[in-house]
């Protein structure tokens, strides 16, 4: 009975995924160049927001410096493409490597602080990273001018080479990137390790008595989230052909939290949708209003006051109760 159920569940999930992917695949055919670009950005940012969900939604750790990883991933990709070797793959590897080390360092040092102290500490670390790069005028990173003129190489994918300078091609690659990232994160949160994270979120003090090391679990979650944020930042730079300090700014750290909250944390897909919604919303209002931050700021306020669990959060609670395990 249980087995039968899971098979039909699997079929249903497969069908849903196939439909969404197909819809996403044909979407750019109906969009003009500007909107295609916007779609690529939205999809890349959705991975960034999802990476935050690993720490915030599952492990229940509020971090306020997530942009540091996005930015460092971006700079790593930029350095790789511009100065070292024109390969997206190597850029991603470098981005993952750099962010993993950075996240390990920040996580290891900060994890003893709890709650709001941890949030402020991560903010401080991110600010240090931001300032160091902001003032790096005489280095290849370009200081506050950013690392500009990053070339977009061909993407070697086995036998085929994809020309990423075409927005449509980059779009499809971004969809594949987001989908693979989603599947990987889904795997992580569904694993025993994911259960430990949920345990930490629900009742951190009990977890050690069940035989788990809370500190290392948290650091691991933080590193994983940092790596995925780094990947998305790397893709962002490859697409935009530059990396700049805006990608490291604490404003982005705050924005990504709102993206995740709007979508509903603890669901993975919620933050992704939230990122897409905010990106599109921001682009629309910035074409009509010069002072679009006024409206974005108001949106933050509204989200916090009226929907702390987000759009998907409302559904997710119900869903979890039905599924049980």
């Amino acid at each position: 009975m249980a087995k039968l159920n899971s098979v039909s569940n699997f079929k249903k999930t497969f069908l849903v995924h196939a439909i969404i992917l197909a819809a996403l695949a044909v979407l750019p055919l109906f969009l003009n160049g500007y909107h295609q670009k916007l779609a690529v950005e939205a999809i890349i940012l959705s991975v960034f927001a999802m990476s935050l969900d690993l720490v915030m939604g599952y492990a229940g750790i509020a971090t306020f410096g997530h942009a540091a990883f996005f930015g460092i991933g971006g700079y790593a990709m930029g350095v790789m493409l511009k100065f070292l070797f024109p390969s997206i793959w190597l850029g991603l590897i470098l981005a993952g490597f750099c962010t993993a080390i950075l996240a390990f360092f920040i996580g290891f040092v900060s994890i003893r602080a709890k709650g709001i102290y941890f949030a402020i500490l991560t903010l401080a670390f991110a600010e240090v990273v931001y300032r160091i790069i902001f003032h790096s005028y005489n280095t290849p990173l370009g200081g506050s001018d950013g690392l500009v003129g990053v070339p977009t190489p061909m993407l070697h994918l086995g036998l085929v080479d994809i020309d990423l300078r075409k927005t449509v091609n980059f779009y499809w690659v971004a969809v594949a990137f987001a989908y693979l990232s989603y599947l990987t994160c889904k795997l992580i949160v569904g694993s025993p390790f994911g259960s430990i994270l949920s345990g930490i979120r629900e009742n951190e003090n009990r977890v050690p008595f069940l035989g788990f090391n809370v500190k290392w679990s948290k650091v691991t979650a933080f590193v994983l989230a940092g790596i995925f944020a780094g990947f998305s930042g790397a893709m962002f730079t490859a697409f935009k052909t530059y990396a700049d300090t805006e990608q490291l700014n604490f404003l982005l750290s705050g924005k990504v939290i709102v993206m995740a909250l709007i979508g509903g944390i603890g669901t993975l897909i919620g933050p992704m949708v939230g990122a897409v919604v905010i990106t599109i919303f921001e682009s629309i209002i910035s074409t009509y209003f010069r002072a679009h931050h006024l409206i974005i700021g108001a949106l933050f306020v509204i989200v916090v006051i009226f929907m702390p669990k987000g759009l998907f959060g409302l559904f997710a609670r119900k869903d979890r109760n039905n599924n049980g395990s």
């Binding site: 939290i257 709102v258 010069r290 931050h293 700021g297 933050f300 989200v303 916090v304 006051i305």
Partner: peptide, 30 residues
């Protein structure tokens, strides 16, 4: 605004005031 936040998780305070700060800065610029 702040009245509605008493007793909520501090991360929400951080976010609300973060948005409020954005609004103030942009308004000042306008």
């Amino acid at each position: 605004l702040f009245r509605r936040l008493y007793g909520r998780d501090p991360i929400f305070h951080l976010l609300l005031t973060f948005g409020l700060g954005m609004m103030f800065r942009e308004a000042a610029q306008l």
